[in-house]
Amino acid sequence: MLLELETVTRLYGTVIGVNDVTLSLPPGAHGLLGPNGAGKTTLLNLITGQLSPTIGSVRVLGQRPRSSHALLQRIGYLPGSEGMYADVSAIEWITYLTRLHGHQAAEARRLALRAIERVQLSEHMDRKISTFSRGMRQRARLAQAIAHEPEFLILDEPFSGLDPIARHSMTVLLQQWISAGRSLLVSSHVLYEIESLTRSFLLLSGGRLLASGSVDDVHHLLADMPAEVRLRVDQPRLLAEELIRDELVDSVRIEVDGELHVTTQVPSRLHRFISRAVCEDRFLVTEVRSADDSLQDVFNSLMKFHRGGV
């Protein structure tokens, strides 16, 4: 297993950072989603061994991160805060951090150069970090995380503060990392950033794990939660009448192009009704689509549900 957390709770005095989180992740790419203050960084600190859980146990690649130096050799970490030395060049900094993995000077420099090339920073590697743009600094930070060729890359808000071009470059880099068959855990509070990398995610809010798995898994979880459904049907008004009569929907809207939008508290019953209607040839339905297709919608639904908004 890539990651195994068992009833992990982390307290800061009386404040709960992470609350009773149990999860098990196989190798691969995973997103860690949640609003600011959800406990994502605390969870990553637990995974990288900087913090130990108050209750529960954490295992990364089968080892306890707090007590295993060998594990640290196998993971690369890009923290959320910058914390770079402004007075050194990128190549010096990355070589230094690679040497701390136990490599000799020449080997560390070779690995650092390769990492810098991968993040497309070779042209600027001799410049002091203080002269770097935000995007360049982020690429240098990524280079230090991948230079020692870890199996498992952990990134805390890697897209934070990047302009669209830098964001795209970072996405491409991470997509390459994933396609090379390596594992990745990336945290963000912006969903489309994660969506472009993986469909497997963990949703954290208030220190609790609200959901985990693929988007489909979460859809299944949401099956009987309020949902918006869009239908293309030959007789939208007639269908809307029947849905209202059978108390299957909360609201109905027919768009100018004839598409029927309904919101429902009982999506399972609604879908059964439509299936039956189609089988009985009462309506010609050409498309049934959940409006909650995107990860953002799933996220919004879960957050609303968690906050008691629905």
């Binding site: 990288t48 130096h69 060998a70 923290p79 910058e82 914390g83 770079m84 030395y85 701390l100």
Partner: peptide, 17 residues
């Protein structure tokens, strides 16, 4: 204070070194 400790802490034997 410089927030650079985290880079050292996630290296094997980094803090002691």
């Amino acid at each position: 204070e410089g927030r650079s400790w985290v880079y050292l802490a996630v290296r094997p034997h980094g803090p002691l070194a």
